[in-house]
Design a protein around this nucleic acid. Structure first.
Lengths: 106, 106
DNA sequence: TTGATCGTTTGATGTTCGTCAAACAGTGGG
DNA sequence: CCCACTGTTTGACGAACATCAAACGATCAA
């Protein structure tokens, strides 16, 4: 079965308000910090440092990030790999991602 | 009666999540664009381009912006003057405000 | 094929949010 | 002193949201 990219907004469809709202949540901001390395990540809570949350809750937050345009998700077998859409975000909202990541690391 | 500054978080108390959540709303983003000139603004909807909203709704949104640390409000007589806390935001989250304002103008 | 694994979806619950309307409060002008 | 003006506060209501639990679906290994 070939890999597949889950539904997500095109670069020009990414909206500032939606992105800001997506990032305006402590859990999703934690996820963003994990994704800051521009590597692919699966959905394992242990890796994500979210062991306190139910897996369906994590799934919900990852969907919000994807549908807002912050991340992209690739399917491979029964795993899903999530990655930051840094190029798209930088093109659409220059400087935004860097400043948020810088502030989130604190 | 002397002028007075309404309650607001100190610079070091401004939280990233709270700011992002405050800006993750279309009305408050419109307000932010108005405040981008670093001038003081009163609460008149006509000036703000928010004639479609009830005045208590506008008051609510301005409170959210103030309590999140995005704006400061000075009382003078029966008027209130709102201004961006640009220096505080730049110090705490370098580049964030500029990138949001740049993206919001579009 | 059977079972384990990874993650999503659905439903339920309580909370937060955005909005309006009406009442309220402080201020300053006649 | 009264009244108009500016803006806030409170209450109500529906929509959206965060969370969990349980059921489901797809995949891979034995």
């Amino acid at each position: 079965m070939p890999d597949e990219t889950l539904p997500q907004p095109a670069r020009d469809e990414i909206e500032l308000v939606t992105v800001l709202r997506a990032l305006g949540d402590p859990v999703r901001l934690r996820l963003l910090a994990v994704y800051a390395d521009d590597q692919e990540h699966n959905c394992d809570q242990c890796d994500l440092g979210l062991e306190d949350l139910h897996k369906s809750t994590v799934s919900h937050h990852m969907r919000v990030l994807r549908e807002s345009g912050v991340t992209t998700t690739r399917t491979s077998g029964r795993n899903r790999f999530v990655r930051l859409r840094r190029a798209d975000l930088d093109a659409r909202f220059p400087g935004l991602l860097d400043s948020v990541l810088g502030a989130a690391e604190r």
